[in-house]
Simulated scan of single mutants.
Amino acid sequence: MILVTGGTGLVGSHLLYHLCLENDKIKAIYRTESSLKKVKKVFSFYTADLFLFDKIEWFKADITDIPSMLPVFENVKNVYHCAAFISFNPKDYRKMRKVNIHGTANLVNLCIAAKIDKLCFVSSIAAVGDSLNGELINEENEWNKEQDNSGYSITKFGAEMEVWRASQEGIKVVVVNPGVILGSGFFNAGSGKLFSQVYNGFKYYTEGKTGFVSVQDVVKPMILLMNADVKNERFILVAENKTYKEIFDGIADAFGKKRPSIRIKPWQTAISWRIAWLISKFTGKEPLLSKYSAKSAHSVSEYSSEKIEKTLNYKFKSIEKTIENVCKNYLN
């Protein structure tokens, strides 16, 4: 029996579809009925038949609430932990600690108590250290707690530490660290906003650079790693290192829209996030830009996926093809 947390999110919903293609029994947790509709929408991008969705046994539970999780673990042998709270807003830091660190600690404790066989955790490149001497970042780059890290980076690193604790208790563990994940189904949140913004005529770009990957190229290696004789290892999942300008241009071309043409410089975002912060203080609304999202927009980081490619003999789909597919689903 397989358990998936975060099954109503981008990675979790696509993971559930691919797991449902197998014959294993699957459990997944959810918090609201409306979130299940999003999962069905993701399944519809693959097939018009909801037979696969009906294979999932859903439990209303929350990883921050241990009593709600206890019934979920009955007969579970393998766990995919995809649940997380993502934000670059400093005011969400406490919530991120609660979900990402304490929630993962709860899950690890439940895994240990249930004596599960293997745990796959979806971390992030935000929990990987920066480049040394200009070389590509790999799994050996150590995260530096002395840096001015975002709350998201801190809590994802903290969550990884909880998962490694599970490995010390005899549970086989694999950790994946995806780059920016591009996929269909969640166009009003996270990386999905890149597509909706460009479609609606977004004019601006920055020259920051980072690793990008298709959601399919996240979930497929996860399944392969869980089925392989691999344990207590972490793997960066990045198909290509691209500038945000290249991503925006690719999306605009796929939509047949005008490419963003106004370059935003670091000093401009430095002023903008401060103004956005001040406005949010008066209005109580979410700031359109934060210190860390502004910093990320201009930072240049390049990653190596050599380890996963060699371990699984895996070949990533090009970002160009990924963008074309996501744009097609957006229009549909």
Rank of each mutant, 00 (worst) to 15 (best):
residue 241 N to Y: 03
residue 104 T to N: 01
residue 329 N to T: 11
residue 173 V to S: 02
residue 277 W to V: 03
residue 190 G to F: 06
residue 135 E to V: 08
residue 212 F to N: 01
residue 300 V to T: 08
residue 47 T to F: 15
residue 127 A to N: 10
residue 71 P to N: 13
residue 292 Y to P: 00
residue 221 P to L: 09
residue 197 Q to M: 11
residue 220 K to A: 13
residue 181 I to S: 06
residue 185 G to N: 08
residue 31 R to E: 02
residue 27 K to M: 04
residue 299 S to V: 15
residue 244 Y to R: 05
residue 230 V to Y: 02
residue 318 S to C: 07
residue 69 M to I: 11
residue 268 Q to Y: 06
residue 123 S to N: 04
residue 4 V to S: 02
residue 182 L to G: 00
residue 263 R to S: 09
residue 200 N to Q: 11
residue 210 T to V: 08
residue 273 W to E: 00
residue 257 K to D: 07
residue 316 F to T: 01
residue 210 T to C: 06
residue 90 P to Y: 09
residue 321 K to Y: 08
residue 125 I to V: 11
residue 295 K to E: 13
residue 231 K to M: 08
residue 163 V to M: 11
residue 267 W to T: 14
residue 14 H to G: 03
residue 201 G to H: 10
residue 142 E to C: 15
residue 305 S to V: 12
residue 296 S to R: 06
residue 127 A to V: 05
residue 222 M to P: 03
residue 31 R to T: 12
residue 165 R to A: 09
residue 265 K to L: 15
residue 294 A to R: 01
residue 133 N to G: 10
residue 239 A to F: 07
residue 249 D to E: 14
residue 240 E to W: 04
residue 8 T to H: 02
residue 27 K to Q: 07
residue 62 D to R: 07
residue 239 A to N: 04
residue 258 K to T: 14
residue 140 E to D: 15
residue 304 S to Q: 07
residue 206 T to A: 14
residue 249 D to Q: 03
residue 34 S to Y: 13
residue 321 K to T: 05
residue 134 G to L: 14
residue 24 D to Y: 13
residue 321 K to S: 15
residue 310 K to G: 10
residue 292 Y to C: 01
residue 161 M to S: 08
residue 80 Y to T: 06
residue 12 G to L: 07
residue 96 M to R: 07
residue 259 R to Y: 12
residue 172 K to T: 05
residue 124 S to P: 03
residue 164 W to H: 09
residue 267 W to L: 08
residue 149 N to K: 11
residue 252 A to W: 00
residue 68 S to V: 02
residue 85 F to E: 02
residue 262 I to T: 14
residue 106 N to Y: 02
residue 269 T to D: 05
residue 32 T to S: 15
residue 57 E to T: 15
residue 294 A to Y: 00
residue 182 L to D: 00
residue 54 D to P: 15
residue 222 M to N: 04
residue 243 T to R: 06
residue 214 S to W: 03
residue 99 V to W: 01
residue 225 L to E: 04
residue 149 N to H: 14
residue 32 T to L: 08
residue 122 V to G: 04
residue 123 S to V: 14
